[in-house]
């Protein structure tokens, strides 16, 4: 239930940026941990990588790439907002950022399946 004063597009852009950043920060240690197994437990590392063959895992990875892309493009939008002269097209940029993220994540998904 979103409070009424928040129901405008750029607040949702903020929410998406914050949630994607949070998710990435929380999942990154797990990502690092799995990669580190390559040295200490190479067999377990191999087993983890075998999981990528499962469709559900591919879909989850698509989600992760989407989160990274969303945070990246959203970040570019913010840096442009703060360092370039003001543009009245803020909502358009937010829409472009979200679409570009989806397209990139989709490219990943199509490559993975």
């Amino acid at each position: 239930m979103i409070r009424p004063h928040r129901s405008h597009p750029l607040w949702y852009a903020f929410l998406l940026h914050r949630l994607s950043g949070l998710a990435l920060a929380v999942l990154l240690p797990f990502h690092f941990y799995v990669l580190a197994l390559a040295l200490t437990e190479p067999d377990r590392f191999g087993e983890f990588i075998e999981w990528v063959d499962y469709p559900l895992v591919k879909f989850a990875e698509f989600g992760l790439v989407f989160l990274l892309a969303v945070h990246f493009f959203g970040g570019l939008r913010l840096i442009a907002l703060e360092f370039l002269p003001w543009s009245p097209l803020q909502k358009t940029y937010a829409a472009i950022a979200a679409s570009a993220s989806f397209l990139i994540a989709r490219a990943f998904f199509l490559s993975a399946i």
Partner: peptide, 9 residues
Amino acid sequence: LGMQAVYAV
């Protein structure tokens, strides 16, 4: 954790 991962691979 990150540097450990980089070193590992």
